[in-house]
């Protein structure tokens, strides 16, 4: 069992560059277990890169990332990831059900077949995102939001302790948005740690316990109250920031 005192994610001096161009500079932070954390920042700020470095997908120039005190490689299977844009061929001959079952692959070595428990978990994950009635659909015959929900269900079926979602709210309809935000709440209740890349400043306070503001450097990390301040945000977003009245959510 994992000790609750160990942070789910611990970064120290994390520095990442692409071809000599630094994208993340000296980022240190601890994310305790069971938090729902938003990652915010302008386009190209390095949000996706931050997530990818937790997956061990990008080479680090310096620094460490530890998950429950283990190295990223040793913690595989504890982390589920829904990328911003997957490399998916939507014509591929798999159904919604096949895709969700892929969440169980990591528990099923090649010499074993799926158990009824695996099927039950996948069933539940599909119901959680309200896609159970689409289980026999080929994956390309869904709308963009429905596809997003299927991939969310697969991440749930992985039963990972850490959930990394890169812009799950981008381009989805109101129904999907509700389904995803219900998932965040449910995952938190199960003690999972969830990291969500998010763009909408207006809804951030209601979704997240903590917010990370990043733009190459770590600008702020704390509760929404502490982090979502006009002067701080203006510093990160520059002139691009629309001034937001946080009490009513209305434009000023």
């Amino acid at each position: 069992m994992i000790l609750t005192t160990v942070p789910a994610i611990a970064m120290e001096h994390l520095t990442v560059s692409y071809g000599g161009k630094p994208v993340l500079i000296d980022i240190s932070l601890n994310i305790p277990q069971g938090m729902v954390v938003g990652i915010m920042g302008p386009n190209g700020a390095g949000k996706s890169t931050l997530i990818k470095s937790i997956m061990g997908f990008v080479p680090r120039d310096f620094g460490t990332v530890r998950l429950f005190g283990k190295t990223v490689d040793n913690a595989r299977g504890h982390v589920a990831y829904v990328p911003q844009r997957g490399q998916i061929d939507w014509q591929f001959p798999v159904t919604v059900w096949d895709v969700v079952m892929m969440g169980r692959y990591q528990y099923t070595p090649w010499y074993r077949s799926f158990t009824s428990r695996d099927r039950h978990i996948a069933e539940q994950a599909l119901a959680d995102v309200r896609m159970d009635s689409f289980r026999n659909r080929q994956i390309g015959q869904l709308s963009g939001g429905q596809q997003q929900r299927v991939f969310m269900a697969r991440a749930l079926a992985q039963q990972a302790d850490i959930l990394l979602l890169d812009e799950p709210f981008a381009g989805v309809d109101a129904a999907t948005e509700r389904a995803i935000s219900a998932l965040l709440t449910a995952s938190k209740a199960q003690g999972k740690t969830v990291l969500v890349v998010h763009h909408d400043l207006e809804t951030a306070a209601e979704f997240f316990d903590r917010i990370i503001i990043v733009n190459r450097r770590l600008f702020a990390y704390g509760t929404p109250r502490d982090v979502l301040k006009d002067d701080l945000l203006a510093g990160v977003y520059g002139g691009a920031l629309r001034k937001i009245n946080w009490n009513t959510g209305a434009d000023t």
């Binding site: 990831y81 895709v99 990591q106 090649w110």
Partner: peptide
């Protein structure tokens, strides 16, 4: 047949395949 799942997931979603090693 034996490694059907591996071939399939790598072909369908290489990112997910990589994330489970």
């Amino acid at each position: 047949i034996l490694f059907y799942r591996y071939f399939t997931i790598v072909s369908f979603d290489p990112i997910m395949a990589r994330s489970i090693g």
